[in-house]
């Protein structure tokens, strides 16, 4: 039972990070119908920048409390990623808005490769450890343990996700975003500046990505130029699982996927009599994805959509 609860808690931490990244995918997909393959790389840049800034501050002998250091780091990372997201949309996606759907997908892959290679240029190919400022105090919940850091990751994720939902549902900007996602042409006729809205969506998504990057970095205590790829893919899976284009769905999908994954990794050995081990963790996301798309192609919370070829 302890193990079960422990896996649920691990899954919750992982899942809230997935959810935060999934929001970035789902917002862009909802508005433009485009898989922003480069979003995982934005997350990676966010993590890299945070780690670099924190290390640099420590290197200069500035001994602030850990929280303040991380806060400064992420305050640099967020604008950096926002700028990155804005540039990606402007350069790689906007000119192709009316092109056949394969074209933006290929540019997205191209941008993703370019960002990875630039990251190698700047930060090298090795894993960069997070500076040893994190505390590892453990909280016990019914026999399962979770670090305070992980608790704060989950809490922060929920705060941000709630804030985003409020923005999208209650503000004028949110209304414009929803209108654009339903029909850009008509939204334009109603006085919505579609280009600005799309840029804003990318910028918001990238800011969330930067925060997610920080969380990945603190959770695994290391960053790497390739870290955005797998986590981006899984977050996309989470977005599809919840019903792509649906913000609440992305959150639910992310958390569900995180829990499925950690339960799966925890129990697959017992279930298959030791034939498959926990190193098969990564296949669960894809198995879930395939199953969802077969049995409920619109996702758990998605509305029935017309065919999007």
């Amino acid at each position: 039972m302890d193990i079960f609860l422990q896996q649920i808690l691990n899954g919750l931490v992982l899942g809230s990070i997935y959810a935060l990244i999934a929001l970035g995918y789902t917002m862009v997909y909802g508005i433009m119908g485009l898989i922003n393959f480069a979003h995982g790389e934005v997350v990676m840049v966010g993590g890299m920048v945070t780690v670099t800034v924190v290390s640099a501050l420590l290197g200069m002998g500035i001994n602030l409390p850990a929280l303040a250091l991380i806060l400064i780091g992420v305050m640099v990372a967020i604008p950096a990623c926002m700028l990155l997201g804005f540039t990606i949309e402007r350069v790689a996606y906007r000119p192709l808005r009316n092109a056949p759907r394969l074209a933006p997908l290929i540019t997205a892959i191209g941008v993703s490769i370019v960002l990875q290679q630039l990251a190698i240029l700047v930060w090298g190919r090795n894993y960069i450890p997070f500076p040893p400022i994190l505390d590892h105090d453990v909280v016990e919940i019914f026999g399962a343990s979770i670090t305070k850091l992980q608790v704060s990751i989950v809490v922060l994720c929920f705060v941000i996700m709630t804030a985003l939902l409020v923005v999208v549902e209650k503000t004028k900007l949110g209304r414009a975003m929803r209108a654009t996602s339903q029909n850009p042409a008509v939204a334009g006729l109603m006085g919505v500046n579609v280009n600005t809205i799309i840029s804003t969506t990318f910028v918001i998504g990238s800011a969330l990505g930067a925060i997610a990057g920080l969380m990945v970095a603190t959770n695994y205590e290391q960053v790497h130029y390739y870290m955005g790829f797998m986590i981006g893919l899984k977050a996309f899976t989470a977005a599809v699982l919840g019903g792509i284009g649906n913000l609440g769905g992305a959150v639910a999908g992310g958390i569900l996927l995180g829990i499925i994954e950690s339960l799966g990794a925890g129990y697959i050995g017992d279930l298959t009599g030791g034939f498959l081990g926990s190193h098969y963790q990564d296949i669960f996301a894809f198995m879930v994805l395939i199953a969802v798309l077969i049995f409920r192609p619109s996702g758990l919370m998605g509305e029935k959509m017309a065919d999007r070829a």
């Binding site: 898989i35 759907r101 893919l233 894809f286 994805l289 798309l293 077969i294 070829a309």
Partner: peptide, 21 residues
């Protein structure tokens, strides 16, 4: 067989997952 009904990006991402599996 399982992806008969899928199109476009969804198909892309499932095939990607298949390759990774």
């Amino acid at each position: 067989t399982p992806v008969l009904k899928l199109k476009g990006d969804y198909l892309a991402i499932v095939t990607l997952g298949f390759g990774e599996i």
